[in-house]
Amino acid sequence: MSVRIGVLALQGDFAEHGAMLGRLDAEPVEIRQPSDLEGIAGLIIPGGESTTIGKLMERYALRGPIQALAEAGKPIWGTCAGLILMARDVGRCQPLLNLLDITVERNAFGRQTDSFETDLEIEGISGGPFHAVFIRAPVVRAVGPGVQVLSRLDDGTIVAVRHGRLFGTSFHPELTGDTRLHAGFVEMARHA
């Protein structure tokens, strides 16, 4: 049976996540207000501008309901801006969900001309390296107890984390043709 996965659709590349879900046995649901969250099995917070998404999330009172979704054990996955929004601390004042006990540095590689692509080994993802696209990307500088590191760059920089059913990636799997991470997330949501 097709599983309904919410994609926060306030700003950013939510359509790209929707297209990835459409290639799997999942039905993407665009989330703009709290009532849209009803009946979803998991939530993806897309790439975009974290300040824009955060302000709109606050404006439409989505923060509490998303935190409640996490407490109810539903999987949530943030990519890039989504990772920032899920963090506890990003070193500046902006609306956050505080779902992952991590410290994040925004724009950690510099400006757009420092954006890049590379291949990564990701814990739990078999079948060879995962092609990862980093765009004005954040990185995880510190993780709290219980947070598992899933992937690092060669220099040790943390770019993917997990805590239970909560996931964060610095990069954008939705910009590649590789559905492995989305497929794993959908399976987890189906059984959550």
Binding site: S115, E117, E121, E123, V149
Partner: peptide, 10 residues
């Protein structure tokens, strides 16, 4: 768990 890919920019 380390990356093994070259980095391509731009």
């Amino acid at each position: 768990m380390s990356s093994n890919g070259a980095v391509s920019k731009n």
